[in-house]
Design a protein around this nucleic acid. Sequence first.
DNA 1: AGATTCTCTTAAAGTAGTTTAATAAATCAA
DNA 2: TTGATTTATTAAACTACTTTAAGAGAATCT
Lengths: 211, 211
Amino acid sequence: MICKFAQTIKVVIVDDNKTLINQLLDHIKKHVRLSKEEESIIPHYFEHKEIKKRQYLLNSDSLVKHDFFVINGCLRTFVIDMNGNEHNLLFATENWWTGDFKGFYKQEMATQNIQALENTHVLCITKEGKDELVERIPMITLYFNKLFENAIIAHQKRIEQTLCFTAEERYLDFLKVYPNVSQRISQKHIASYLGITPEFLSMIRKKLTLP
Amino acid sequence: MICKFAQTIKVVIVDDNKTLINQLLDHIKKHVRLSKEEESIIPHYFEHKEIKKRQYLLNSDSLVKHDFFVINGCLRTFVIDMNGNEHNLLFATENWWTGDFKGFYKQEMATQNIQALENTHVLCITKEGKDELVERIPMITLYFNKLFENAIIAHQKRIEQTLCFTAEERYLDFLKVYPNVSQRISQKHIASYLGITPEFLSMIRKKLTLP
DNA sequence: AGATTCTCTTAAAGTAGTTTAATAAATCAA
DNA sequence: TTGATTTATTAAACTACTTTAAGAGAATCT
């Protein structure tokens, strides 16, 4: 055995945009069948972008130009309230879509912000690009429709949880549903996502580790 | 002048299903152009149902057979938590769609309940019916897509508000955005929608009416 | 019309979660 | 490696909201 850790070392090869777009194509093909010709059309509508840790991909009050498909890394989408406090809405890792939804589809100014929590590679598409893509490959509507469907289900779940669950219950569900995300981001960001202060999350965690 | 109250008397004519389906067709035509032939196809996929005040249109743990378009009246969609408490997710009045979203699209058991707060007329469509309708009138996908888009925007707004706003701010926004709904339903149902107790809503209202 | 049930209000006591502040631990910059 | 900044923890004081209880008013049922 040359390297006994080989299985746990994650090597990200980003030398070639073809690798990146294939990841998106694979994701699309989980929902829709694509002909070889269609597969060759899709790459033209996406632009690759690398975003370093702590940098911003979108700021509120700027025009929303793109929607983003995450290749690797981690992004957080958040809003800033009247008192200047940030509230995380979503963490996006590998194979997640993110963006300012309303701003993108209505072609308005952003109300949300997107920041990289890790060095991150994304594929960007514009609204016009997406519209043209759907026109050229009508079947791909099924894919985007499925994304919408999943988004609504996820949003409804979150609304139900804030109405029905305590902060502790919401935290436990978050750990269960997003185990890999929760290990990669800081607790203050998890607290913000859950709608509580980092201090209170710390108390919850203490209570959970004790018998 | 024969009756000086004529303008304030609301006469609902429900003698004829054609009147009902036209209301839906008008709603669809705000988003998509329909040929006369297409207009004649659509009615076959909808079934009219009258639901009396306090009756249930859907109970959790039953199979979700239909999605609903409200002609008139008012429905509330709610979940029941582990302690048996109800939490309102949505009020649907004229020209709103409602249903157990996840249950309908995944053809699963309902987790949500729907009850009439007023005598209500709805048009029902099954999942198979909707799928076939979309196949026969592909353009109608644009209509349903727009509904999805609006649903995601509304859900995101609600999530942001629970993170950023106090109960009082959420109440004021509810009054502003749904003035007609808020006058038709009881305060205990508004409180439940806002995620607070009726007692606390009462305190908020008292505080707001004082200087 | 009278009895019953539901809704709204008020108030006092209680609790989930916040704020402030201080300290330790981890991460980052140089 | 050191100093500077950010993150996590703990605890005490505080606040937004809940719970319980009780009474008045409205709606609903015979």
